Simulated assay, not measured.
Amino acid sequence: MIVTVFRSRLNAESQDEYQQSSARMSELAKGIAGYISHKGFTAADGERVTIVEFESEEGLRAWATHPEHVKAKKMGRQVFFSDYRVQVCSVIRDTAHRKPAMDRADA
Protein backbone atom coordinates (compact mmCIF):
# COMPACT_ATOMS: atom_id res chain seq x y z
CA MET A 1 0.00 0.00 0.00
CA ILE A 2 1.12 3.56 -0.76
CA VAL A 3 0.06 6.37 1.58
CA THR A 4 0.28 10.03 0.67
CA VAL A 5 0.19 12.61 3.45
CA PHE A 6 -0.73 16.03 2.09
CA ARG A 7 -0.27 18.88 4.58
CA SER A 8 -1.35 22.39 3.64
CA ARG A 9 -2.50 25.80 4.74
CA LEU A 10 -5.34 27.34 2.78
CA ASN A 11 -5.40 30.99 1.73
CA ALA A 12 -8.51 32.48 3.36
CA GLU A 13 -9.62 34.28 0.20
CA SER A 14 -9.74 31.07 -1.86
CA GLN A 15 -11.79 28.85 0.47
CA ASP A 16 -14.95 28.74 -1.65
CA GLU A 17 -13.12 27.96 -4.89
CA TYR A 18 -10.98 25.40 -3.07
CA GLN A 19 -14.05 23.61 -1.66
CA GLN A 20 -15.47 23.16 -5.17
CA SER A 21 -12.15 21.87 -6.51
CA SER A 22 -11.67 19.59 -3.51
CA ALA A 23 -15.10 18.02 -3.98
CA ARG A 24 -14.32 17.33 -7.63
CA MET A 25 -10.91 15.83 -6.80
CA SER A 26 -12.52 13.59 -4.19
CA GLU A 27 -14.97 12.31 -6.80
CA LEU A 28 -12.20 11.72 -9.36
CA ALA A 29 -9.83 9.97 -6.93
CA LYS A 30 -12.47 7.38 -6.08
CA GLY A 31 -12.60 6.37 -9.75
CA ILE A 32 -8.88 5.70 -10.12
CA ALA A 33 -7.89 2.01 -10.27
CA GLY A 34 -6.16 1.04 -7.02
CA TYR A 35 -7.77 3.80 -4.94
CA ILE A 36 -8.48 2.67 -1.37
CA SER A 37 -9.50 5.75 0.63
CA HIS A 38 -8.84 9.32 1.62
CA LYS A 39 -9.72 11.45 4.64
CA GLY A 40 -9.06 15.06 5.50
CA PHE A 41 -8.59 16.77 8.84
CA THR A 42 -8.05 20.35 9.95
CA ALA A 43 -5.99 21.14 13.06
CA ALA A 44 -6.81 23.92 15.52
CA ASP A 45 -3.97 26.02 14.04
CA GLY A 46 -5.47 25.79 10.55
CA GLU A 47 -3.16 23.19 9.08
CA ARG A 48 -5.03 20.74 6.86
CA VAL A 49 -3.98 17.12 6.46
CA THR A 50 -5.29 14.71 3.86
CA ILE A 51 -4.30 11.05 3.96
CA VAL A 52 -4.73 9.16 0.69
CA GLU A 53 -4.29 5.39 0.26
CA PHE A 54 -3.65 3.51 -2.99
CA GLU A 55 -2.97 -0.19 -3.49
CA SER A 56 0.20 0.47 -5.49
CA GLU A 57 2.50 3.09 -6.96
CA GLU A 58 0.79 2.56 -10.33
CA GLY A 59 -2.54 3.71 -8.90
CA LEU A 60 -0.91 6.70 -7.25
CA ARG A 61 0.88 7.55 -10.50
CA ALA A 62 -2.42 7.40 -12.41
CA TRP A 63 -3.90 9.81 -9.88
CA ALA A 64 -0.89 12.13 -9.91
CA THR A 65 -0.97 12.41 -13.70
CA HIS A 66 -4.76 12.62 -14.21
CA PRO A 67 -5.27 15.81 -16.29
CA GLU A 68 -7.84 17.37 -13.93
CA HIS A 69 -5.68 16.60 -10.91
CA VAL A 70 -2.64 18.13 -12.62
CA LYS A 71 -4.68 21.29 -13.22
CA ALA A 72 -5.91 21.32 -9.59
CA LYS A 73 -2.36 20.93 -8.28
CA LYS A 74 -1.31 23.95 -10.35
CA MET A 75 -4.22 25.95 -8.87
CA GLY A 76 -3.13 24.82 -5.43
CA ARG A 77 0.36 26.22 -5.94
CA GLN A 78 -0.85 29.45 -7.54
CA VAL A 79 -4.06 30.21 -5.66
CA PHE A 80 -5.25 27.89 -2.90
CA PHE A 81 -2.31 27.25 -0.57
CA SER A 82 0.09 29.51 1.28
CA ASP A 83 2.24 26.43 1.79
CA TYR A 84 2.02 22.66 1.47
CA ARG A 85 4.02 19.47 1.82
CA VAL A 86 3.47 16.09 0.17
CA GLN A 87 4.95 12.92 1.65
CA VAL A 88 4.56 9.62 -0.24
CA CYS A 89 5.18 6.55 1.89
CA SER A 90 5.27 2.79 1.41
CA VAL A 91 3.46 0.97 4.20
CA ILE A 92 5.86 -1.30 6.04
CA ARG A 93 3.40 -2.64 8.56
CA ASP A 94 -0.37 -2.30 8.92
CA THR A 95 -1.95 -3.43 12.18
CA ALA A 96 -5.56 -2.87 13.18
CA HIS A 97 -7.92 -3.82 15.97
CA ARG A 98 -11.65 -3.32 16.26
CA LYS A 99 -13.76 -4.36 19.21
CA PRO A 100 -16.76 -6.59 18.49
CA ALA A 101 -19.95 -4.59 17.88
CA MET A 102 -21.48 -5.53 21.22
CA ASP A 103 -18.48 -4.02 23.08
CA ARG A 104 -18.41 -0.70 21.18
CA ALA A 105 -20.16 2.39 22.50
CA ASP A 106 -21.44 3.19 18.99
CA ALA A 107 -23.23 -0.17 18.64
Rank of each mutant, 00 (worst) to 15 (best):
H97T: 11
S14Q: 10
R24N: 08
S56F: 06
E17N: 00
S82P: 09
R61D: 13
S26N: 13
C89K: 14
G34N: 03
A23E: 11
E47S: 02
G40E: 08
V70L: 14
S37C: 06
R61I: 13
L28P: 00
E53T: 03
L60H: 02
S8Q: 00
M1R: 14
V88P: 07
D16K: 13
I2C: 08
Q15R: 11
A107D: 14
I92H: 08
R61P: 07
C89T: 13
K39Q: 05
A64V: 09
G59S: 06
R61F: 11
Y84V: 03
E57A: 01
H69T: 02
A62F: 03
C89F: 13
I2Y: 05
A23Y: 12
K74A: 07
D103C: 11
L28Q: 00
E53G: 01
E13H: 13
R7W: 14
R7E: 15
S22W: 04
A43S: 10
S90T: 14
L60W: 04
D16N: 08
G46L: 01
G76K: 05
S8F: 10
N11V: 12
D45P: 02
H97R: 09
R98E: 14
V70K: 15
F81Y: 10
M25L: 09
Y35H: 06
R7T: 15
V91G: 01
R98D: 11
F54M: 03
E53M: 09
M102F: 15
R61S: 14
D94W: 12
R9W: 14
I2G: 06
G34M: 01
I32D: 09
R7K: 15
G76V: 06
E58Y: 03
Q19R: 13
I36T: 11
D16H: 12
K39N: 01
V79R: 09
Q78F: 01
R24Y: 09
T95L: 13
M75E: 08
R77Q: 12
R104S: 11
A62W: 08
G59D: 00
W63C: 01
R85T: 11
Q19D: 07
Q87A: 15
K73E: 07
G46M: 07
L10G: 00
V88M: 09
V5R: 12
A64E: 09
A12Y: 10
A105C: 10
E17G: 04
E47K: 07
A101W: 15
V70C: 04
Q19S: 07
H97C: 05
Q15M: 12
K39L: 06
